[in-house]
Amino acid sequence: MVLLSITITAKNEAPVIDKVLNNLIKQLNDINHEMILIDNWSSDNTFQILKKYENDHIKVFRYKGSKGSARNFALKKADGKYVMALDADQVYLNLDKFLRDYFSRYSSYSVKIGRSSFPIISPKELLMNVGGWRDLQFAEDWDLWFRLAEACKYIYLIDYDWVFGEHIRSHKNNYSLISKILKYMLKYRDLYIVGLPIRPQNIYNKFFYQLGMVLSFFKNEKKIVYNCTKYLEIPTDKIESEMDWDLQFHYNLIRYQLLTCKNKPIFSEVLSKFENYLKRNYSL
């Protein structure tokens, strides 16, 4: 049986995908793994590049859909006991060290690390049980994390920045005005569907948020009111205003599970590490 399936969904990543994949392959020689590579209907030659890597351990597919549905397609194609979903524009480092930590201490949970570019590592069965990713283009990861937290199976590990190398995004800066407008419309539609309490501050983002709410009525994926999202903005004397919303929400997801789940020791341990990190890095 395959121990670990590494899934990557890529769209128009031709300038960077070779670098990302070659870096990954070098780190995985001693791990029983497979790779599931999905080209999400790129308009460049990303699919042709991915096909060069195809072998008995690397499967390549083409799929057309949202980022969330593409991730879910990869999940269903994976044969591993565990699934590690990664991004196609991020160089990862020290994965062997991280995987030792995960398998020795957290392997019955779904784990997220870093501020971006690491969607999840999890038992495949757990991801399937909560429904995997929904058909969303944005915030599809938060939507999954909320469902995992309500199942008492979500952990955010702080202070793992040493896993992240270069995040290569310069090839994504040449969007047309129409593409940028469409992106904002879909972004705020999906933020509303997920229930992520992000409140736009300027008039333009407020306009797109209102437009996104309207667009959500025409989306098959409807808004779900997750219990845990009510806890995301709960104030705490341990978090100062300088702490951004991303870390605050992850912190409160751990607090939510500590308060509502039976298996409290693991969440108490993770929360303690989180707070020690905050003390070292913020004015607490």
Results as ranks from 00 to 15, higher is better:
Ser5Ile: 06
Lys11Arg: 14
Asn12Gly: 06
Asn12Thr: 09
Ala14Tyr: 10
Pro15Glu: 08
Val16Arg: 02
Lys19Glu: 14
Val20Thr: 09
Leu21Ser: 11
Asn23Met: 04
Asp39Ile: 08
Ser42Leu: 13
Ser43Lys: 15
Thr46Met: 06
Lys59Gln: 14
Phe61Met: 10
Tyr63Glu: 12
Asp87Lys: 15
Ala88Trp: 11
Asn94Ser: 01
Asp101Trp: 14
Phe103Thr: 01
Arg105Trp: 03
Tyr106Met: 00
Ile120Met: 08
Lys124Gly: 03
Met128Thr: 08
Val130Asp: 05
Val130Phe: 12
Glu140Val: 01
Cys152Asn: 10
Val163Asn: 09
Ile168Ser: 00
Ile168Arg: 10
Ile168Phe: 04
Ile181Arg: 11
Leu182Asp: 01
Leu182Met: 03
Lys183Thr: 06
Tyr188Asn: 06
Leu191Glu: 09
Ile203Trp: 14
Leu211Phe: 14
Asn220Trp: 03
Asn220His: 13
Lys222Asp: 01
Tyr226Ile: 04
Asn227Tyr: 09
Ile234Gly: 03
Ile239Glu: 07
Ile239Gly: 04
Tyr251Ser: 03
Ile254Tyr: 05
Gln257Ile: 06
Asn263Leu: 12
Val270Gly: 07
Val270Glu: 09
Leu271Cys: 01
Ser272Trp: 11
Ser272Phe: 07
Phe274Val: 06
Leu278Trp: 09
Lys279Phe: 05
Leu284Ile: 15
